[in-house]
């Protein structure tokens, strides 16, 4: 649907690139996704713990 307020072409390019990157991530093997998850958990866990909640980073064997 066309908008009266078109998105800036540069922003459009960035959004398209983000969308492409997310589709590439979706296509990764599940094992690689789990490795990414653990890296994200390592980044997020200290923030969650700072709020007084438990956050256990997974120990994965592969």
């Amino acid at each position: 649907m066309e908008s009266d307020n078109p998105i800036d072409p540069e922003l459009q390019r960035i959004l398209a690139a983000k969308s492409m990157r997310r589709k590439e991530l979706a296509a990764l093997p599940i094992e690689e996704k789990i490795r990414i998850l653990v890296r994200m958990q390592e980044m997020v866990a200290p923030l969650i713990r700072a709020r007084g909640k438990e956050a256990v980073v997974w120990k994965i064997d592969a």
Partner: peptide
């Protein structure tokens, strides 16, 4: 959902 889409944070 990981089996079908990008990974997101979960514990």
């Amino acid at each position: 959902a990981f089996f079908y889409a990008e990974p997101v944070t979960t514990f």
